[in-house]
Amino acid sequence: MRNFILDLQQLFLLSISIILIAAVPSFIADQNGINFSISRYGESVLEVLTTLIRPDSLTLYIHSQNMILEPMPVNISYEFVNEIYEIPLFPEIWNIVIYTLGLLLISFSAAFVMALFLGWVAELLPASFKKTALHISELLEALPDLFFVFCIQLAVVWIYKKTGFLAANPFTSSREPSFFLPVITLSIVPTIYLFRMQLTLSQTEMEKDYITFARSKGLGHSQIIFHHLLKNTLRELSIHLPFMMLLLFSQMIILEYLFNLNGIIQILLSEQPAETRAMLLMLITIPLFAVIKGVKLFIKKERVLNAA
């Protein structure tokens, strides 16, 4: 119960900090340019707070450029006029939020499962292979995420050009959203990160007494790894979950541009009122927060059950 209240407090503080972040633009600039002002910042924080209490009053700006033709063209001339419509945020936004969250959470679970599986396989291999795996994962971890994105896009298009087989949709078009490739690219970097963590953690874990004891009792190697090692490293791994989520989210930002996805980031980055931005950020981060807490709780419960 106490833990639950502590989690609620953390959740509350997280929402407050997101509101504070979303209001920062008003601290830096006003209509006429750069002009730092703390009082304006305070005002806009208050405004965001009061608007967020009634979510149905939130609005979404839709930007469009429309072509205007002169009624009697002397010579054919036209220009584009920027227009902004204001529509209510709420039924409109759900699909986009669910799409972005779906991408994030599916690639989170894919990365988690893949890293555990690879860690298990790597433990079964001889020690020299393990060392090479560690070195390779360290090298791969250093590569920028963009490198993977470019390579995957190029590879898919190259295969398509050579064989006419389109493995997955490399860009979102208006007809079909691409889902499969973004999930794969999103999960690569967290998988590598978690896999390396798993390897380094299991190195220290292998030397502990209970492993030696289990081995002396005559338990098989794969059983020791599966039953004892993985379960014990899981708890240590769960410390790194928030960082993994941050990795995923920050990759999501560039993937959305590179794969041309219709996600939440492009809405966040277009011109929107601060309260809408705060709401959108909360809609993404609070589920991520909940997932991390849930996974941690699950791992803890598992351990308590095993201990009893």
């Binding site: 407090q9 509350f12 997280l14 900090s17 941050l246 989210f249």
Partner: peptide, 13 residues
């Protein structure tokens, strides 16, 4: 707890 915003919202954003 207040600094958690930086833990969940990426710096680039």
């Amino acid at each position: 707890g207040l600094l958690q915003g930086f833990q969940f919202v990426p710096q680039s954003l």
